[in-house]
Amino acid sequence: MSIDSVFVHKMWNDHELSKMVKGGVPFAMLSDTGGKVGTIYGVYDEDAGVETRGRFIIDPDGIVQGFEVLTPPVGRNVNETFRQIQAFQLVRQSQGTEATPSGWRPGKMTLKPGPDLVGKVWEVWKTDMAFD
């Protein structure tokens, strides 16, 4: 979503993005001329008249599970977005019985919070695991 019109979205997709991604952008390119939607999401920069680089993960119940907002010159890490979605999906599927520690990615151990784990995380989770 940006402040560009759908006509500009079409031109950008057809003339540039489709040369980067075969078949063009596979999802909806939303238009927020005037920044009304960006304003309620807290990402519209009134001084510059553009949206900042906001990214929101919304679950199937319409609940915001996470967001990240960057100033324009720095791009996102899409793999980190995927990792977060996979973590939120795992937690949701476990109905809150599992949690994903720092550095978790699919296949790595999860934590099962409960009375037995209090004060014992150091035994099952090592700081190296945040970086491996």
Partner: peptide, 13 residues
């Protein structure tokens, strides 16, 4: 609703 959504804002085309 019923799906996971990633909503991305960006400065401009």
């Amino acid at each position: 609703l019923g799906k996971w959504v990633v909503l991305c804002f960006y400065p401009g085309d």
